[in-house]
């Protein structure tokens, strides 16, 4: 394989792994969020390399854009950047790393014991994953899941509004609310 191609894929893969590790080790949650943005963009580039441009752009706009804005907004709203790093349960960290190692070993074993050999990924023709083609399939074969997704989003929106509505003793009752005084100036 061409050395330049290998270099590009190597750098992309390294970016993905390093930003993922940076996410879980950085102390400040804000840095974690920025590492996650780097990770999303790198994965988006991999989607682009896999011949799925529409998903790549959806990834960057939806994930790296709006979802991360939500994250950073809540981090700043709660002031939760720094929590103490002490370990309340003794040996929790070691046990966690051990469990993840077992999990990784299972995946590797599954990969080694598979029955069908894997070939290289064929080059995707440009017309296969074009937005027009995706739209055709989305609104024909996957119309029902699409509508169900709309209901999930509606439920999530209503749920988020209900949950974050402020209900405390300080809230004035609607009946005895003072009329707004006009602001001078």
């Amino acid at each position: 394989m061409d050395i330049g191609v290998l270099l590009v894929y190597g750098i992309l893969g390294l970016t993905v792994i390093v930003s993922a590790i940076g996410l879980i080790v950085s102390r400040n949650a804000l840095y974690s969020a920025l590492f996650l943005v780097v990770n999303f963009v790198a994965v988006g580039l991999l989607y682009l390399a896999l011949g799925a441009p529409f998903i790549a752009f959806a990834q960057v706009t939806v994930y790296a854009g709006s979802i991360m804005v939500l994250f950073i907004f809540v981090i700043m709203l709660l002031g939760a950047e720094n929590l103490p790093l002490t370990e309340p349960l003794r040996g929790q960290r070691a046990l966690g790393i051990l469990l993840v190692m077992i999990f990784l070993a299972e995946i590797v074993l599954y990969y080694l014991l598979r029955t069908t050999p894997l070939q290289a990924i064929p080059l995707t023709p440009q017309s296969l994953a074009s937005p027009a083609e995706i739209g055709m399939i989305l609104f024909n074969r996957y119309l029902l899941p699409f509508e169900v997704t709309a209901f999930i989003l509606l439920g999530a929106t209503v749920g988020a509004i209900v949950l974050s509505k402020h209900e405390g003793p300080t809230r004035p009752k609607p009946g005895i609310q003072k009329p707004e005084t006009p602001v001078e100036g």
Partner: peptide
């Protein structure tokens, strides 16, 4: 690019995610 590149990358990402969920106590990082 061979398929195993993506398999390895995805497995590593998933394992790091599991590690973050297990180890971190800041729910935002989780």
């Amino acid at each position: 690019m061979p398929m195993s590149y993506y398999l390895i990358l995805s497995a590593a990402m998933f394992a790091i995610g599991v590690l973050g969920v297990i180890l971190r106590r800041n729910p935002l990082v989780v």
